[in-house]
């Protein structure tokens, strides 16, 4: 078989085609041999490295896209979380401001009522003092009037004067009193 093949190959050039449909068995064998060798060599030097490089590159691209998508998703999540946190913080701030306002209102009211009470108290105290001073003055006046009356009576008695004179005396005394 091997010998026959060699024979066919060695004679492939001796009878080149004389008509289009002549099948030269030597050329046919040459084709098969060349093709098989070409396949084996190309498989080793070309197809394996090229196809693995293509596969690797496709894998790399797929992974890169996946990574980018993941990163975007993560970024979106972070943004969402940040926004939520921001909203919460604002709410909190609003709450704190509200509380502060409320507290200030309370304090204001308290101070106001306290000061009112104080004022009322002071007024009442003042009234009491005025009352007392009045009473004191009144008492003093009473004793003074009594003394004056006693003095006037004493003068009347001392003079023993007529009714008219007494009247004049009393009148002048009263006048004197008025002057004072």
């Amino acid at each position: 078989m091997f010998y026959k093949t060699l024979l066919l190959l060695s004679e492939s050039g001796t009878g080149p085609q004389s008509w289009l449909l002549d099948v030269n068995p030597g050329v046919l064998l040459w084709t098969i041999i060349i093709f098989i060798f070409l396949l084996l060599i190309l498989k080793k030097v070309a197809w394996k490295p090229i196809l693995t490089a293509l596969d690797e590159r496709e894998k790399f691209i797929r992974e890169s896209i996946q990574k980018a998508e993941d990163a975007q998703k993560q970024a979106e999540n972070m943004l969402k979380a940040n926004q939520e946190r921001l909203a919460k913080a604002e709410e909190e701030a609003q709450k704190i401001i509200g509380q502060g306002r409320e507290y200030a209102e309370k304090v204001k009211e308290q101070i106001l009522s306290e000061s009112k009470d104080e004022a009322r108290k002071m007024i009442s105290e003042a009234q009491i003092i005025i009352e007392r001073k009045n009473q004191e003055a009144f008492a003093k006046l009473k004793t003074e009037i009594a003394e004056i009356a006693v003095g006037a009576a004493e003068k009347i008695i001392r003079a023993e004067l007529s009714v008219e004179k007494q009247k004049v005396l009393v009148d002048s005394y009263i006048e004197e009193l008025n002057k004072n």
């Binding site: 190959l9 060695s10 492939s12 080149p16 030269n24 050329v27």
Partner: peptide, 17 residues
């Protein structure tokens, strides 16, 4: 001219390879 065991078409196949 080619030796007995080669033809023009075989040469072209070898060149292509």
């Amino acid at each position: 001219p080619l030796p007995n065991y080669l033809t023009n078409h075989v040469m072209f196949m070898l060149i292509a390879s």
